[in-house]
Design a protein around this nucleic acid. Structure first.
Length: 104
DNA sequence: CGAATGACCAAGC
DNA sequence: GGCTTGGCCATTC
């Protein structure tokens, strides 16, 4: 069910430009709920088709979990295809936030 | 309507 | 300096 806050999250995620990434906390802040990054993460757990979820990572630039729709491998794959350098470290994929963080 | 949940974050030990 | 804990709040059950 897409409603209210969720929709805002999806719209904001769609605004992330090609080749950039954003963090959960950042999106939460942009939506006016800086203390509720969790809600962003939760919203992403039930993403509608067409949202570039692969451009959203946690505060450390890490891809934390496998989604229902796609694996971390796929997410890393897509990021690479967009020109983003993905590093595999300690069993997880990471991106360089200093280089690719979305400056809005 | 009360209680649980969640792809997070920052502080504390 | 790695692991645990509490807080956050819309949505679901």
């Amino acid at each position: 069910m897409v409603s209210g806050f969720y929709k805002s999250v999806y719209d904001k995620v769609k605004e992330i430009p090609f080749g950039k990434v954003a963090t959960y906390g950042q999106i939460a802040t942009l939506l006016g709920r800086p203390k509720s990054a969790k809600l962003v993460g939760w919203a992403l757990s039930s993403l509608p088709f067409g949202v570039p979820w692969h451009r959203v990572v946690n505060r450390q630039g890490m891809i934390s979990i496998e989604n229902l729709r796609a694996s971390k491998d796929l997410q890393a794959k897509i990021l690479k295809s967009e020109g983003i350098k993905v590093i595999f470290k300690q069993g997880n994929y990471w991106v360089d936030l200093k280089k690719y963080l979305w400056q809005n």
